[in-house]
Design a protein around this nucleic acid. Sequence first.
DNA 1: CTAGTTGCAAAGCATTTGCCTGTGG
DNA 2: CCACAGGCAAATGCTTTGCAACTAG
Lengths: 126, 126
Amino acid sequence: MQRSTRQQDAIIHALQKAARPMSPPEILADAARDVPAINLTTVYRTIKRLLEAERISPVALPGEAPRYELQSVAAHHHHHFRCDRCSTVYDVEGCPAGIGGLVPRGFRLRSHDLVLYGTCKECSRN
Amino acid sequence: MQRSTRQQDAIIHALQKAARPMSPPEILADAARDVPAINLTTVYRTIKRLLEAERISPVALPGEAPRYELQSVAAHHHHHFRCDRCSTVYDVEGCPAGIGGLVPRGFRLRSHDLVLYGTCKECSRN
DNA sequence: CTAGTTGCAAAGCATTTGCCTGTGG
DNA sequence: CCACAGGCAAATGCTTTGCAACTAG
């Protein structure tokens, strides 16, 4: 991450606009509106560089390809909602209570991931 | 799932012995002790058939390849605790309260996945 | 200039499919 | 018997890598 290029800017911009975790193909589609010639390979390589520079974080959902979000978003503890219909992943604020109570005796809890599934606002309308 | 074959029996037996979610390569390694000639393709195809017959269930953890466990284990709603040190995945009973309260207005909740991370009893000792 | 970046094509990997042989019932 | 199951090789889909051309600083 040493130079600033149009492709990199377009990728970062896509993540800023979306404000939700995006997959490489999603990033490509959005960035292509700024830089039509951009390539999927470039998206993957740029993601890798941004991860090393800790400017983005991976968002892994069970059974799905990794998505990515800006470090500024990832820094705040939050969870995710995945729409069954459109597969879009939304950020969700807050935590349920009583997670500590689930931990078996003798185990030590460090962190947790919660993923909600259902239909999003858009898809619920149709 | 119409016939009983040595390969299928070996695969089911491997899952019974392990009593924890296994990946296809893990299943292959174990089943190969009963049926040395068994092939990875057969493992994948048998998994597919067992899934359709609802005799096993997929266990997907964020960022990890899918694993499978017997339906008898998967039947009741539970979550998972993954040890940071030994990577073992434990079943956890119960659910935290107030999950519904996290859902944004207009969204409809269908289900959820919770994964706890930390150190298990064994690893906490050392 | 010149080293970091990009684009294209090819390589890797895990998983799936095609096709033909083997076998359970 | 013969349709389902298995084995091998090839195909697939997503991600990474090799390499020559491009470009930011």
